[in-house]
Design a binder for these strands. Structure first.
Lengths: 360, 360
DNA sequence: CTGAAAGCGCTTACAG
DNA sequence: CTGAAAGCGCTTACAG
């Protein structure tokens, strides 16, 4: 089974009538080496005719490069959210990698604290760099890797750290959401965060909410703010509380779609209607946002861009290119559906999208 | 940057006072080699103290094994569906691979017909075997690989082929859905398939529908059957047609959740109510099935099991173990929510789940 | 512009 | 039970 003599560069060299060195030079397009067009074509043809593929292991061993990047997925409480975007993020990374002839090795890590999984990946020289999704500040493996100068890019932020990362501009996204509500006349706007305030994304979304209010001379009222904890249920509980406030808010910014769903249920359960009695804007634009009743107005995340951006930065680090602009915040977009009460004919989208804004 | 002298097996050998051969034997647990417990411990300790990780490239080159499997995702029309389950499938594959110390290389393929992407993966000896998601019968790369005896497992079926695969028991799942409706008194049950009949999964779901009817002495009425084409819209169109039939069906089996959503909209748009005027059961249990209004009763796919099953079979093939039971159909489960009109208190589940049924 | 040769870091018959 | 040595298939200084 699957015996078949391997075709090696020696075979190609012989067939083309050159040395293996030349074969290697041609196939790898080694810069600074002048090879006659004729020789080059001979080599290329021979390789094609023999269906020659260079052995990756031999190549890695000799060149000390693997041409592989690792995508490490750390289990996190935001799993539902992360999962929804994984395919798009994967596409982003995959496209960029493929364009530069890199491959992607996937590794999921249950518990960063108690395993050396990705240190091992690096130690074994399986990869040239890592994209780490769901980074944690107590991750000693990560710090050790950085110390050695190993290329790492985070998907998500580590507050105050100089580690390269790509993330969503959460502050901007939250502002977009809240400004939309303000522009349409709402003055008492509640907030239910996506998570407890110690989570970066949560703090940032709250900051965006606050900034939008202050910029429009509306006072930030602590009484209208509640903290969610990722789940739909937490959104429902928080909403019930907010509806007890007198007077209750006329609009709500729920800092994650899942939390928004909970808030939606709780509101409907009281016989109130959305958007008539409560205008609602979510955050994330998970696939099911357009399917709930009413369809949710929300902030769209640039999932593909997150993957592509992380891939691009990592490849630059791997190639030792200039290491500036290694912290990237990507802009979001407002997707207007029905829950905000401002729906012009069909669904329309406002703002941003692909282009990113550089920070640092 | 990242200089640092590499630790090699030579270092470990010296520190342990043995030869590199012995180090290799110990670290790889080579069977049939008797090594004193004392020597063994010395080696293990030295390796640990030096933070030694064997170089993967060198190991592959010498052993002709990569300890990596490739997961190839072929773009398919069912993308929305596939995407929803990708994280779970990935977990399944990852867990199995990890347990046997294999790694997973991810590769997505835009167009199987016009690229040699995964032939290249194999040619370069990047992987020891492939899991191919979304196989197509016109895929010549696949056939070539099989001919060479290269280990391949499909995620999904290729009708009439002997290629190893793991798939959902679609016939059984459809029967489960339809029997549920029959058991609760429905006699005129419509069907909207998930896709045109040339798709295996579509034909199988239709077969399950038919079998369930016949088994309960209900006649299969072509007039109550329509073909969807993956999209929600197609479900809406088909439903509108079915509602014109006199007398109209009292229940509907929509062979995918997305199609079911479309049918749901179309039904509501006519002022009819679900489940009162139409009992509805879907298929797939995509994440948003529980969030629509009313929550959708549907058939749950064993996503994790698909990944784990494919991984398990592939690893067996790679290790050259007995190649029986290489075609696996996994059972589904009925998830009862509100759309079928038979909701006992809270959501309850019936049947199957993890265990698989072997075929062939 | 091209080639002979060393070397990357393992594994694995083969001796002993 | 353990070791010396060849070899896996490339790349890359170094000569010429």
């Amino acid at each position: 089974m699957h015996a078949q003599r391997r075709v090696t560069s020696k075979d190609v060299a012989e067939r083309a009538g050159v040395s293996r060195t030349t074969v290697s030079f041609v196939l790898n397009d080694v810069p600074g080496v002048r090879i006659s067009e004729e020789t080059r074509q001979k080599v290329l043809r021979a390789a094609r005719e023999l269906h020659y593929y260079p052995n990756a292991a031999a190549r890695s061993l000799a060149s000390r490069k693997t041409h592989r990047i690792g995508l490490v997925l750390c289990q996190s409480p935001e799993r539902i959210f992360v999962d929804a975007f994984l395919p798009e993020v994967l596409r982003g990374i995959g496209d960029v990698a493929q364009a530069q002839e890199f491959r992607v090795l996937l590794q999921s890590v249950e518990n960063v604290a108690q395993s050396d999984t990705y240190t091992q990946l690096v130690g074994e020289k399986q990869i040239d760099g890592i994209i780490l999704s769901g980074p944690r500040s107590d991750d000693s493996q990560l710090l050790a890797l950085r110390r050695e100068g190993f290329p790492v890019v985070l998907l998500g932020q580590l507050e105050g750290s100089e580690v390269p990362f790509v993330d969503v501009d959460s502050v901007g996204g939250a502002r977009l959401a809240v400004e939309h509500l303000i522009e349409h006349g709402h003055k008492r706007i509640g907030l239910i965060t996506n998570a407890p305030p110690q989570y970066t994304a949560s703090a940032q979304r709250e900051r965006g909410y606050r900034e939008a209010l202050e910029e429009h001379n509306l006072t930030y009222d602590r009484g209208l703010v509640r903290y969610g904890d990722f789940s739909e249920e937490s959104g429902g509980r928080a909403m019930s509380e907010l509806l007890e406030v007198v007077p209750p808010p006329t609009a709500l910014f729920a800092a994650s779609d899942l939390v928004a769903f909970g808030a939606m249920e709780a509101t409907k359960a009281r016989g109130l209607r959305i958007p008539r009695d409560l205008a609602l804007v979510g955050f994330d634009d998970i696939p099911l946002a357009r399917y709930v009743d009413p369809p949710l107005t929300t902030i769209r995340l640039p999932a593909y861009g997150l993957g592509a951006g992380a891939g691009r930065i990592l490849l630059r680090l791997i190639k030792g290119e200039e290491a500036r602009d290694t912290q990237l915040l990507l802009e979001t977009g407002l997707v207007i559906r029905d829950s905000c009460g401002f729906h012009e004919g069909t669904t329309l989208e406002r703002a941003a999208g692909g282009r990113g804004r550089e920070v640092d």
